[in-house]
Design a protein around this nucleic acid. Structure first.
Length: 724
RNA sequence: GGACGAUUAGCUCAGUUGGUUAGAGCGCCUCGUUUACACCGAGGAGGUCGCAGGUUCGAAUCCUGCAUCGUCCACCA
């Protein structure tokens, strides 16, 4: 078919052209800066926020990467040596849960398979999910360099993680200790504070009488009567006159019949409940602190699966928490020790990944000291080494860092980075760890054998994510290797980072101090926090809530360009986006308009000798001059908008210019003029519109570009228009 | 309990440092099939800018309070 015939087609069909255009970009190596012209000097690097391999991408990913692609394509056209490095994240618990869910369909648990077999299953899942995600990215038109695709469990990445761990350990920032952590009985692991969510629930406040050794009773109020089996004290406020005479006395713990001291602690609020608190140091972070301050016993009564353990009276052993609660309340009632029950609104801590109620549990875990690292992270933003957009987030950032607590980095799951920690088989309590990337060659000083076992725990998935901007560029933490690493030297630090709001502390903050700690430089200059995509009802789009939409569905209906258009149109600020399909429909119409206006211009060209030069003849009429002037303005406007992450506004300005100023006014006017100059201007303005619009709707503009007369390369590597 | 953001046309949203008649898209109404496009063109209706105060010559925009919604943070048993 000749060009002429295709141009006679009055409607633009994206589905036919997008695949073919993308293949052309790939074939020509357009996304790989090494394959681009050598004149490009200054680099511009972005490390893609790696999606979790928990399935497929949702609208949030589509938005995030569309906006990043706009930035990337503009910078590429502006002559930067652009590297957008893509990746996917192993996503520890999240992925493990997905695979466990699959297993459960066949009535299997991960324990039935064993660690090795289970890990194999997850790797299979990773291949499948990873492929789906890459396909989605490509369909959307993402111009990242796929030849550099990284995965957070790549061999070299593992090296980076282990070296980072060792670095922190040797610096004394990583320690192991018995602390109360958030324990998820279902995932069977500790999780960090940031992975806990709170659910409002109607519950009760139980008032329980504890008999005093000297006679009489003291009443405590609690939301968790079942943990009383592990009580080791009763605490009151130091200046609470009701109780001052009891401090130093003993109470008898009902059911267990054990003497526990009555103590005074500053954390108590005398206005809550009765002003007296039952202290369970092994199952509450607050009580743990009280326990430390007063040298109390730490009695664990609940096991890793959330059941009453062997320390509890026999009739309780093996019971679930809820069963135990009912039994205890019943028993207290029959003993006459239950004073009353009040209604109480509770915010219940649940696991972010599976929704199971969190069990605060004393446990031997690994922690990263946060105080100094937090200060480093805060300083980088304060000094404007890292710019946070929108600026409002700085306050949240500083507030969070000010109160940051040590980070529990060990997880009792199987999918993730094994910690580089070894124990001798004779050291059953694991009191003498060896920290080493590989299995130690030395002999155990205790038993003289070489029988080292690697610790079973893996690291929190965010520990590896924290290294992302430099680990993806080949950084390993090995000075000799890193010195020779070309990508790391050329492209680090990165220039830009885009992320969703909900992982700001989980990820962004941690990348900032990690970057400074390991490379001496901040990992990126600017971080843009984009809006969250909500559905029409204003609910967050989420697969687990069933409120998500698969971007592929929209792309298959309207095309990738139209989908990008619709999302970008709505991306006007931080305000959450209520996703609305009608903007994608507008996008489709716009592309049709673009196609037809282009046809008009190309088919009516009077001269085939046009160059890129701006028409300056003194024969230009006032409409010619006017549209040229407006073109200059819109170039400036677009640059200004994009430099401030005003994506939606920039697209709306371009839309207005193209449709109204160019098509409705100038193009109509041009029909009345037969001058060669007007024909030149039409061509010149169209050509620059294609350039301006390319970052937003790359496929259609690239497609039309090839019908322009004369010899020229691909639009994706064309130059960005000049403002005047 | 703190913090941040939002509240503008029927719907989804713009409105950059306060400055004439508050804008866009979609929807709605009227007209129009002139050889780029009906996935179109020309025109039109529609807003006491959440509420109540205040600052100012002038407020959608700045300040205070309140209401509703959303998000994040927090050890109240």
């Amino acid at each position: 078919m000749s060009t002429k015939n295709i141009l006679e087609n009055t409607s633009y069909n994206p589905l036919e052209v997008e695949k073919q255009i993308y293949a052309t970009w790939l074939k020509k190596g357009c996304f790989n800066p090494d394959k681009q012209s050598q004149t490009k000097k200054k680099s511009f690097t972005i490390a893609m926020a790696p999606p979790n391999i928990t399935g497929s991408l949702h609208m949030g990913h589509a938005l995030e990467n569309t906006l990043t692609d706009i930035v990337v394509r503009q910078k590429r056209m502006q002559g930067y040596k652009v590297l957008w490095i893509p990746g996917i994240d192993h996503a520890g618990i999240a992925t493990q849960n997905v695979v466990e869910k699959e297993l459960r369909k066949g009535n299997l648990s991960r324990f039935d398979l064993g660690r090795e077999k289970f890990e194999e299953r997850v790797w299979q899942w990773k291949e499948k999910s990873g492929d789906t995600i890459l396909e989605q990215f490509k369909t959307l038109g993402i111009s990242a360099d796929w030849s550099r695709l990284r995965f957070t469990l790549d061999k070299t990445y593992q090296k980076a993680v282990q070296n980072a761990f060792i670095h922190y350990y040797e610096k004394g920032l990583i320690y192991r200790g018995n602390r109360v952590v958030n324990w998820c009985p279902r995932c069977h692991t500790s999780i960090s504070d940031l992975e806990v969510e709170y659910k409002e629930e109607k519950s009760s406040l139980w008032y329980i009488k504890y008999p005093l050794k000297r006679g009489g009773c003291i009443t405590v109020a609690t939301t968790r009567p079942e943990t009383m089996l592990g009580d080791t004290a009763i605490a009151v406020a130091p200046k609470d006159k009701r109780y001052t005479n009891l401090v130093g006395e003993y109470a008898i713990l009902p059911i267990v019949n054990k003497e526990i001291p009555i103590i005074a602690d500053k954390i108590l609020d005398k206005n809550f409940g009765t002003g007296a608190l039952k202290v369970t140091p092994a199952h509450s972070p607050v009580d743990f602190e009280i326990g430390q301050r007063h040298n109390l016993e730490f009695v664990s009564v609940i096991d890793d699966h959330g059941r009453f353990n062997a320390i509890t009276p026999e009739r309780y052993q093996g019971l679930k928490m809820t069963e135990g609660r009912a039994k205890i309340v019943e028993e207290l009632k029959s003993l006459g020790l239950l004073e009353k029950i009040e209604d109480y609104d509770l915010s219940l801590p649940v696991c972010m990944r599976c929704g199971t109620e969190i069990q605060p549990q004393i446990s031997n875990q690994w922690f990263l000291k946060m105080k100094d690292l937090g200060a480093v992270a805060a300083k980088a933003v304060k000094n404007k080494e890292v710019q946070i957009v929108p600026k409002n987030f700085e306050k949240t950032y500083f507030d969070w860092l000010k109160n940051v607590k040590d980070w529990c980095i060990s997880r009792q799951i199987w999918w993730g980075h094994r910690m580089p920690v070894w124990y001798c088989n004779c050291d059953t309590n694991q009191l003498h760890p060896m920290i080493s990337t590989n299995k130690p060659k030395s002999k155990c000083p205790e038993c003289g054998k070489n029988d080292w076992l690697q610790i079973e725990d893996v690291l929190d998935t965010w520990f590896s994510s924290a290294l992302w901007p430099f680990a993806v560029l080949g950084w390993t933490g090995d000075k000799v290797v890193d010195k020779k690493c070309r990508d790391f030297k050329t492209y680090y630090p990165t220039n830009y980072m885009t992320s969703a709001r909900d992982i700001f502390h989980l990820w962004i903050t941690r990348m900032i101090y990690s970057g400074i700690e390991f490379t001496g430089k901040v990992p990126f200059e600017k971080v843009y926090i984009h809006a969250t995509v909500m559905n029409k009802e204003g609910k967050r789009m989420s697969k687990s809530l069933g409120t998500g939409i698969d971007p592929l569905l929209l792309i298959n209906t309207y095309g990738a360009d139209a989908t990008r258009f619709g999302l970008t149109w709505q991306a006007t600020g931080v305000q959450d986006i209520r996703f609305n399909e009608e903007f994608i429909v507008s996008g489709k119409k716009f592309l049709n308009k673009l196609w037809n206006a282009s046809r008009f211009v190309i088919l009516n060209l009077k001269d085939k000798t046009y160059t890129d030069k701006k028409p300056t003849s003194d024969k230009l009429n006032k409409y010619d001059k006017q549209i040229l002037k407006k073109l200059g303005k819109i170039v400036k406007q677009t640059e200004a908008d994009l430099s401030k992450e005003r994506f939606g506004q920039s697209l709306q300005h371009l839309y207005q210019f193209f449709w109204h100023d160019f098509c409705d006014l100038y193009l109509e006017q041009s029909k009345k003029s037969s001058s060669l100059e007007t024909s030149h201007v039409l061509y010149y303005v169209l050509k620059n519109c294609l350039r301006l619009l390319h970052p937003y709707v790359p496929f259609a503009t690239e497609y039309i570009w090839q019908f322009l007369p004369g010899k020229h390369g691909l639009l994706i590597t064309e130059s960005w228009p000049k403002a005047s």
